[in-house]
Design a protein around this nucleic acid. Sequence first.
DNA 1: TGCGATAGTGT
DNA 2: CCACACTATCGCAA
Length: 900
Amino acid sequence: MTTPATSRTPGRPRLLLVDGHSMAYRAFFALPDTMATTSGQVTNAVYGFTSMLTKLIGDEQPTHVAVAFDVSRRSFRTERYPEYKGTRSETPAPFKGQVPLIKEVLEALRVPALEREGIEADDIIATLAGQASAAGMEVLVCSGDRDSIQLVDGDVTLLYPVRGVSELARYTPQAVADKYGVPPHQYPDLAALVGETSDNLPGVAGVGPKTAAKWVAQFGGLDALLEHVGELKGKAAQNLREAVDQVRLNRELNALLRDVELPLGPDDLALRGFDREAVHRISDALQFGALRDRLLAVDPEAAHDASAPAEAAFELDVVDLPTGGLGDWLAARGERAVGVDVSGRGTPAAGDAWGVALAEGGQAVALDLAEIAPDDERALAAWLTDAARPKVLHGAKAAWHGLASRGLTLDGVVFDTELAAYLCYPDQRGYDLGDLVARHLGRELGADDDGAQGALDLALDAAGSRGAREAARAAAVVDLSDALAGQLADRGAAHLLTDVELPLSWVLARMEATGIAADTAYLTELESGFAAQVAHAAGEAYDAIGHEVNLGSPKQLQEVLFGELDMPKTKRTKTGYTTDAAALAELFARTGHPFLEHLLAHRDASKLRVTVEGLLKSVQPDGRIHTTFQQTIAATGRLSSTEPNLQNIPIRTEAGRQIRRAFRVGEGYETLLTADYSQIEMRIMAHLSGDAGLIEAFRSGEDLHRYVGSRVFGVEPADVTPEMRSKVKAMSYGLAYGLSAFGLSQQLGVTTGEAQGLMDDYFARFGGVREYLDGVVEEARATGFTATVLGRRRYLPDLTSDNRQRRQMAERMALNAPIQGSAADIIKLAMLKVQTEFDARALRSRLLLQVHDELVVEVAPGELEAAQEVLRAQMGAAYPLDVPLDVSVGTGDTWHAAGH
DNA sequence: TGCGATAGTGT
DNA sequence: CCACACTATCGCAA
């Protein structure tokens, strides 16, 4: 799978030795110090170093690796010559802070980090290089220190950074001779004459590399040169005679030690494969995105396992069933849970499945659906659909779609390892089976070759191991389910899997498979309309400044606005000044420049056009759009929607609402019906806080914001002005996000003082809310997690971070997670109840979409009243709160018309 | 080709 | 300097 970039003598071990400090230091200066996590930890050195090491491991395919570090600046060289490296400035603090991070990365990669007091990294490398080549190993030294050139020989190659750390020059004996005119072992002689500014070793005046090389070559070495120094003529020679002592000292200092005592020898440096869990942990912490994947892709252990049969790692008997033998095999499994792995594409209405692997009790079978015998296929179909036959899958919803494409239905799934892992670790980025298996079972499945959404297992079997990988996955799912079931129980979350997420995954599968009807003719019209607006606005904008620019390029816009037009600077971004809509509107208010007006119009129209284009592209042959609901993405427990995202279809502007008219009731159905919870998050806040005032607000039936406004401003509800109402509305919603006075002032366009006053007044009336919010953070800090009404946890270790930014971010998450998460719990329960009730009443009406607090249903003829009744009743009774759950419903031919 | 930064849409 | 998402585009880097 991974091809070595350079050929390697088969069987000959190759040792990679890296000078940690010099490479990290180069990365530090090569990469911008704006490179940081959202919480402010600068990561340029650790990122650059890790990236460089990743590339080296991938390209050079070493069998052994070690990284050497300097412990401090003091060494035997500074003892001998206090001025050594004396010109170097103080190591920058942002660099020092990253060294421990680099060591953490190395630990995750299981690469030894070597260091010794009083010894420099180069000496450690020199020693190991000597030992390794004596042992017959090939050696690669990666260092930015030129002293390392002396190590180069037939067995040892130096990789020296040219620019930054991304490009490395290969110093072989020939390359050194070509560049410096002396063989590598004489390079220190040359350097002693020329001097090394970075080490504060002065050279001989008037002697550069050319002269030095000539002399060294002429006399065959520095010692001989110094013996015959009297014979030389010229100014440079005179200078040399005066500097002999310094030259001898230089030579003494630039000689690398080759006999440092070390705890590890070359044989101990074998690359053993990464600790993948640790790689994920540190990548999460440092917010490595692509680098994480590159890193995992060069994991030697994973690469090894991909080429070797995975079942070799543990006991698994891949049974070669006789034709027609599947029924008996399945019958023999009895009531025991069977692991199922489906190969194919798990996308709604466009899925496919070409293989199924089953595993139980150390035995596995792999089936090719294209070649399966009719008897076996019948046995498989009957077994898959039998609710009494327990199954365990990783990502059952995707498997459901894949199998559905073959007319196979899946039932009796008792555990889904992907959902379980999500419930245990909701903040994780992904739940790749191979990674989970490595983390929880300490076993390797081999790198997953496709992380694409909805992709099942796309592995093709290598000859001779038919279905082995699939079988190994199926077996791993069973073992993993045991491990995760224990962890779920520890977290009190087992019921969330069995009572909520798992049954919900079938509801979602049906919704996705159903899709929502789209009016393509109308969408096409809309698209051309928006396109015309885009073109018109662009033309006007160009006229306003007298030339064309790419209006979609913030960079070019900045040149126009702040260069050409010399407008006042807006808020800073990482790379310049923002050109977002709020800033442009502000600029327009101040300058009145027509370009801004047309630019804003262009932005709006072009956003809408692109949205429409995306929708058009996603209409399937059945005339419907089938989104995929992601059930394991949002850390709070919400769903998300992809390909396309139907949870962010415009609604605020009239032009945007036009797009909602393209979502129509399907042929053979009566109407669309939408039902949404009003102010569900504030109701949860009232419930969780127990604030008497807020609870009364909801029980009174008065408009919430009017009621709150009347209390905060001390007026009758009827006298609450729209301005007052919008202020308390912003305040109320902001609370659930951990709003600050500054944030509120920004939102409302008032001073921070006014915002603070509003907050004080608010909390004076609704003190229970403040107590609750304070309590949430305090409890989360003590327990390490927040919990929703159903006990869904979110772990927030940063609540005790020393870093203020990180801590405050975690505090806001702690405020928001129980509220957003409880709302997610409640609508999930509602969906289950609605579906159950539809089924119980044998209604043909069907759920289509969920948009966080809204459900969209397609109503079958004659069922409108029943469907409305089901939605009102089941959503309203989804979960008992201390305040009523208000549900409002609407109907219409389009999503727009059905909305409220 | 892939990725980070920017922008904009929703709840 | 207010939470949680997804997608598109640009421009740079590998």
